[in-house]
Amino acid sequence: MAGIKVKAKLKSGVVKVKAMAKHNMTTYNQAEKKTGNKDDANFITHISATCNGENVFDMSTSQFLSKNPIVKFKFKGDFKKGDKVLMSFEDRKGKTGKGKGKIK
């Protein structure tokens, strides 16, 4: 199951998020080595996060993030403990993964 683990913590007004997406992140070179076809490469191309319906994080990525990439980011605003941070990613083949975490 493709998914994304989200941990969020509120500290002095700033929400700190640590997220891990489960994904192989195959580069073109790795794909060519394994299957002989560069087009088999598959990696996350876009990660985003929302909290209370507001877009708080947005990232376009390439194949050079590590396998099962961990991203950390921070955001602030009118958010409180217990609010949910929803995250999702999309990969090169169009598959999506989702996850959520409560702000602690």
Partner: peptide, 28 residues
Amino acid sequence: QDANPEAAVCAYSVTKYSVNEYSIKIKM
């Protein structure tokens, strides 16, 4: 980065809520 076949790693579009401190792991 300039070590891999292609150069771009990632791009963030900053939102009005962002605190611009990030951490990622990359391959080289």
